[in-house]
Design a binder for these strands. Structure first.
Length: 338
DNA sequence: TACTCGTGGGT
DNA sequence: TACCCAAGAGT
């Protein structure tokens, strides 16, 4: 069964920057690790440019380990789930200190930001270990192959067991990528292309006509709306009033505009410094994983003797901000002569 | 176990 | 528009 999938993969593998060349080039553990962390809960299309920028700027794990925290956070800005960037640096420094990546799944999983999926992926792809990767694609493929109706996430252990049963001991890295590619291109969440699937023969859901209904998932809670105010201040010399957010929690470690907490009740105006703050009519609407945010904006031109942390205009790039803060800047900048 | 943690694209 | 979804990890 695995041979059928590998045969399909050999003919349909997509050209992705982090792939091992099909003619036998060696997988670079650093690039495999970097790509897998970036791909956590993130689409291939979103990752591509980030991967190229990171590898161009930091070609080895030693280079990344020596980078400044703020530079890495700025380079990651816009990709989301910023704990990944914080853990990326921790992991790079741990690997640089020990000399190289561990070459076993257990060793890899001790590192920050490397969990059950990523450890298996690196071990299989970079070190040719027979390990089973279980991501969202694999869960969906296994739920259909075995017509498993138990809803996720409760079904995860059985789906993992199914996946392990099918894993071959030849070409484990290619096989891992093949199952994920199958899920991404054929065994898709909606309208699966069962007619051209290399596993259409053994697939139980295909036989039972249930493929499109699997995997089942427990319903998610509705997202509440939260409200807040952000203050975009600019000094007479063009410098911007910005702050580094605390290293834990939402947008932890990223650069952003000072502001109120985000609560389900109307925010109380609380400027970071006294000034002639002016409210903008437009608000930023942004959706996070578990709530919607409506962010009101205040802008002010600030005198040169204003206390606080200012970033000179020449060093300020909106692209260094997370998307929410970038949206706020886009609305406020025209009001501040930028 | 269940929750937290971003963002952009597809339908 | 309002969902759903994406190569999950940490707590």
């Amino acid at each position: 069964m695995a041979a059928d999938l590998l045969h399909w993969y050999d003919r349909h593998a997509r050209a992705l920057p982090w792939r091992v060349p099909p003619d036998g080039g060696r997988a670079d553990p650093y690039r495999v690790w970097l790509s897998e962390v970036m791909l956590q809960q993130t689409t291939v299309a979103a990752v591509k440019d980030y991967f190229h920028r990171f590898t161009a700027r930091w070609p080895t794990v030693q280079d990344l380990a020596a980078a400044e925290d703020g530079d890495v956070m700025a380079e990651w800005a816009g990709l989301g789930y910023y704990a990944r960037a914080r853990n990326l640096l921790k992991c790079a420094r741990a690997v640089a200190a020990r000399g190289a990546f561990p070459d076993t799944r257990a060793g890899l999983q001790e590192l920050p930001g490397i969990g059950p999926y990523t450890s298996a992926a690196i071990a299989a792809i970079a070190f040719d270990r027979t390990e089973t990767v279980v991501d969202g694609n694999v869960e969906r493929v296994m739920a259909r192959m075995f017509d498993e109706h138990t809803p996720l996430p409760a079904a995860k252990p059985v789906l993992t067991d199914y996946a392990a049963r099918l894993t071959p001991d030849q070409r484990p890295g290619d096989y891992a990528q093949a199952v994920m590619d199958l899920g991404a291109t054929i065994c898709t969440p909606r309208n699966p292309a069962c007619g051209i699937c290399p596993w259409r023969g053994p697939c139980a859901a295909r036989a039972n006509g249930t493929a499109a209904d699997l995997p089942r998932k427990t319903p998610k809670a509705a997202k509440p709306v939260r409200f807040g105010i952000a203050y975009i201040g600019r000094r007479a010399d063009g410098a911007w009033l910005l702050e580094r957010r605390p290293p834990e929690g939402l947008l932890g470690g990223t650069l952003g505009w000072p502001g109120t907490d985000w609560a389900t009740t109307d925010p109380v105006d609380a400027p970071p410094i006294p000034a002639d703050w002016r409210a903008l009519d437009a608000e930023v609407r942004h959706t996070f994983t578990h709530f919607h945010l409506r962010l009101s904006l205040r802008v002010a031109r600030l005198p040169m003797d204003t206390p606080g942390q200012f970033l000179p205009d020449a060093q300020f790039r909106p692209a260094d901000l997370p998307t929410l803060m970038r949206k706020a800047h886009a609305l406020a900048a025209p009001e501040l002569g930028a």
